[in-house]
């Protein structure tokens, strides 16, 4: 690629932690982005060109309002690649917990006057537009982010981490918290990339990187039941980072 690739960064409903990870967090990320042009990113700089065009649009956050979905469609139309970054954008993340309860009920718990609220059921980015890959994680993983930018510069297809946390646990030689300590670990159904962070720090994985492709949620939910978890407990485990349309659906019993 002769010209520096143009990158647009858009934030929807989220904590802005992925954008933070992208822009402010680590020196080598900042260095890497010097080979690109960030032409739109509101938290980073004034001005910019939200209208595009973009070689890559990075989308942070889940969709919870109609204007976000409308803008997302426009961004898709002017972007060569569109990549959701982080769990909210990839699978709904924490903001999708509200999908487990009726929308009006949730709103009434927060505002006495809900007439000004225009919130919808929380959706992931690929519920609305075609995506060209995903940088998973909460916050998104720096390894996959680096892979994305390097692939863009080399004009090659990125290879994202695509296995369960269990694989990373074995590579790190951790003792299995599920089998050895009887802890309800979400590792078997959760996408890797964190380096098995929680098991490495003596706790069960809570699934923040979201569902792994082809996860066997049904089997893990069954195992949790054998371990004595109630249906409510299991439901909570499978809804903290996975909205009800993902690969974790089979575990979302209630």
């Amino acid at each position: 690629m002769n010209e520096q690739p143009k990158i647009g960064v858009f934030k929807y409903s989220c904590c802005a932690g992925c954008e933070f990870q992208l822009i402010y967090f680590q020196k080598h990320v900042i260095d890497m982005f010097e080979k690109t042009q960030i032409t739109y990113c509101r938290m980073l700089q004034s001005g910019g060109h939200p209208e595009g065009p973009f070689d890559v649009a990075l989308i942070e956050g889940a969709i919870t309002e109609q204007w976000q979905a409308d803008q997302l469609n426009r961004v898709r139309a002017v972007s060569r690649y569109l990549i959701p970054i982080g769990s909210c954008a990839v699978c709904g993340g924490v903001p999708a917990i509200k999908n487990t309860t009726e929308e009006q009920e949730i709103e009434k718990r927060v505002y006495t006057d809900t007439s000004l609220v225009h919130s919808m059921k929380t959706g992931a980015i690929n519920d609305y537009v075609k995506i060209d890959g995903a940088v998973k994680g909460c916050p998104m993983g720096v390894r996959d982010l680096s892979e994305l930018v390097i692939s863009l510069l080399l004009d090659k297809r990125p290879e994202f981490v695509n296995c369960s946390v269990c694989v990373e646990c074995k590579l790190a030689a951790n003792i299995c918290v599920l089998v050895a300590y009887n802890e309800p670990c979400m590792g078997p159904v959760t996408n890797a990339g964190c380096g098995a962070l929680c098991p490495g720090h003596h706790r069960a994985c809570y699934g923040c990187w979201g569902p792994m492709e082809d996860a066997n949620a049904w089997a893990l939910a069954g195992q949790f039941r054998l371990m004595g978890l109630t249906n409510d407990d299991i439901h909570r485990k499978f809804t903290e980072f996975g909205q009800p349309t993902t690969q974790w659906k089979a575990g979302q019993i209630k």
């Binding site: 989220c14 509200k98 009434k108």
Partner: peptide, 20 residues
């Protein structure tokens, strides 16, 4: 946009709250 944390925290377990 509101994400309704105070709304959806209702029904969650005490040891999930910090992570959420």
């Amino acid at each position: 946009p509101p994400r309704f944390f105070e709304g959806f925290l209702v029904g969650r377990r005490f040891d999930e709250v910090g992570d959420i």
